[in-house]
């Protein structure tokens, strides 16, 4: 199968959907003439022209709201945030407008929109460019939140997100855009809300999503050398969460570690831990342990980063702890 980059997979998804439906358009900072801050939309202005691919001023609140209004009135906008760190100045439109519109209007006005862009840390960018918001948006009824971990999932899930009639938050990573992976030539869609078992195992379940999947998979690889077979689940979507896939695995392995990049309080890991203790209590041989970023803002120096974000070592340690091998 052919191998393409994560950014190319995203571009293919948007391009295919824009060819398919003329009501789909792309809008964001530097998406058109600059060809994308991270080259995700490279060439799209050339193909679709300025009436489908719009550069915006630096006005996230304004163009996010424009997207919501356009979606209420028949279009299917893809609104790109250069990073979800910048979505905070637009979050009123995402939470109060996009997420609540259908309910608030008694079902009269839906908002079929995709807000997409990178989330989380991307190297030494300092505190304002390094936060994770997956759990923030996942907390809001009305939204769907998709966080893919590889090019294949990214393409299939982005196409589904664009076709979805509900507002979708689609989160990527600057650190993943260059990742390569197998992506078939033909068209395919992946369902929102379905987790994927990326590695089979019987001894312990590791649940993760987004770019932390790399940490989870690498840890599983290392653990295998010690004879520990970890089952690694990629949530792919954090709203809704595919609890069943997680529970089925935990009922089999009886042990669970959750790896997530966000800060720990009220995180996706907290939610999973609640759900697992509630629904698989009698199956657990150890408390669920999570590996999140430390409870501090992410600072600049590499030593701070090393000390605070989840990594392979912390994940292996957590697994050994739930297996009482420490």
């Amino acid at each position: 199968m052919r191998v393409i980059q994560f950014r190319e997979a995203l571009r293919e998804a948007m391009t295919e959907e824009m060819r398919r439906d003329k009501n789909v358009f792309l809008m964001g900072e530097e998406v058109a003439e600059y060809n994308g801050a991270y080259k995700v939309s490279q060439g799209m202005l050339d193909e679709f022209g300025p009436d489908r691919v719009y550069d915006t001023p630096i006005a996230e609140l304004g163009f996010a709201g424009l997207g919501v209004g356009a979606a209420m009135n028949g279009l299917r906008p893809i609104i790109e945030f250069m990073t979800f760190n910048f979505s905070l100045v637009a979050i009123d439109q995402v939470i109060n407008s996009a997420a609540k519109m259908l309910a608030m209007s008694g079902g009269q006005y839906g908002v079929p929109i995709v807000f997409r862009g990178p989330t989380g840390n991307a190297g030494q960018l300092g505190a304002t460019h390094s936060s994770n918001f997956e759990n923030w948006f996942a907390n809001t009824p009305g939204l769907k939140v998709v966080v893919p971990s590889n090019p294949y999932d990214a393409k299939g899930l982005l196409k589904s997100s664009i076709r979805d009639n509900d507002p979708v938050i689609f989160m990527e990573s600057e650190l993943m855009y260059g990742d390569k992976g197998e992506v078939p030539e033909g068209e395919y869609l992946l369902p929102i809300g379905v987790a994927d078992i990326k590695r089979k195992g019987k001894d312990v379940t590791i649940i993760s999503f987004g770019k932390m999947m790399k940490v989870a998979l690498e840890a599983a690889e290392e653990l295998a050398k010690d004879g520990i077979e970890a089952e690694v689940i990629d949530l792919r979507t954090v709203r809704p969460i595919d609890y069943k896939t997680c529970l089925d695995s935990v009922k089999k392995t009886n042990r669970c570690v959750v790896v997530e990049e966000a800060n720990p309080l009220a995180a996706i890991s907290s939610e999973l831990t609640y759900n697992i203790q509630r629904n698989a209590f009698d199956y657990l041989d150890a408390p669920v342990i999570r590996v999140n970023s430390m409870d501090v803002p992410l600072s600049y120096a590499p030593t701070y980063i090393e000390a605070t974000i989840p990594n392979v070592k912390r994940t292996i340690d957590a697994v050994k702890q739930v297996m009482y091998k420490k």
């Binding site: 424009l66 407008s97 008694g106 006005y109």
Partner: peptide
């Protein structure tokens, strides 16, 4: 809200309806 009359709300956050109104007009032009 009244979709039949093209009345698109009725919004609670002061000023938030303004970018939305822009988007509604944008869709007409589009």
């Amino acid at each position: 809200f009244d979709k039949e009359k093209n009345f698109m709300g009725g919004h609670g956050i002061v000023g938030a309806q303004v970018p939305m109104g822009l988007g509604i007009g944008f869709a007409e032009k589009y």
